[in-house]
Computed example of a mutant assay.
Amino acid sequence: MSMHETRRAARQRRRRRGLMVGAAAGVAVTSLVVTLVLTMQRDGAGNAGKAPAVAGAPARGTAPPVAPRQKPSAASPTAASATPAARATTPTPPAATSSSPPSASPRAVPATASLAGRIRPRTTYRGVATVYQAGTGDGACLYGPSDDMMIAAMNTADYETSQACGAHVLVRAANGASVTVRITNECPLPCAPRQLDLSEQAFARLAPTSTGRIAITWSLVSPGTAKAISIRYKSGSSPHWCGIQAIGHRNPLARLEVRTGGGWRPLTRTPYNYFLSPDGSGCGGALRITDIYGERLTIDGIALRPDAVQPTRVQFARH
Rank of each mutant, 00 (worst) to 15 (best):
C191N: 03
S277P: 02
G44L: 09
R194Y: 11
P58G: 05
P223Q: 12
A157K: 05
R194T: 12
A28T: 12
G248N: 05
S99P: 04
A24Y: 12
L198H: 02
Q245I: 07
C283L: 05
R122N: 14
H249T: 14
R13T: 14
G236P: 05
A317L: 14
D300T: 15
A129D: 00
L115G: 07
T83M: 15
Y143R: 04
G44R: 13
T312V: 12
N273A: 13
L142A: 12
G284P: 02
P110M: 02
S76R: 15
V34Q: 09
I214A: 03
A28C: 14
T97A: 12
S98K: 10
Q315G: 12
P68S: 12
T217F: 03
L253H: 03
V34T: 14
Q310N: 10
A134I: 01
S237T: 04
P110N: 07
I292Y: 00
Q195T: 08
F203V: 04
G44K: 08
V179E: 04
C283N: 03
G44Q: 12
H168A: 06
C242D: 02
R305W: 04
R265A: 12
S103A: 15
N155Y: 01
L19S: 09
T217K: 01
G137V: 05
T78V: 09
G22E: 09
T89F: 08
L36Y: 08
A167D: 00
R265N: 09
P223E: 06
R296N: 13
V27W: 14
P106G: 11
Q163P: 01
R122D: 11
A167R: 01
S105C: 11
T209Q: 06
A95M: 02
L297C: 04
L115R: 11
Y233F: 07
G26M: 10
P72F: 01
S222V: 08
S199D: 02
E295N: 06
G263S: 07
R255L: 10
T209R: 05
L297W: 00
V21A: 15
A88S: 14
D138M: 07
I183K: 00
Q41V: 14
T184Q: 05
I119F: 01
R126F: 06
T312Y: 07
T290M: 08
P271M: 04
L253R: 00
G285T: 11
R313E: 08
R265K: 15
T97C: 09
A129Y: 01
L142D: 05
G144K: 03
H4N: 13
V109K: 09
Q195G: 02
S178V: 08
L36C: 10
V54Y: 05
P58A: 06
G285F: 04
G49D: 12
A23L: 15
L267E: 00
I229L: 09
S281P: 03
E295F: 02
A111S: 14
L297P: 01
V221D: 03
A104G: 15
T161D: 10
T290N: 03
R17Y: 04
S162Y: 00
Q70Y: 07
S219G: 15
A59G: 13
R305S: 14
T124A: 13
L198A: 01
L196P: 00
N273W: 00
P306F: 11
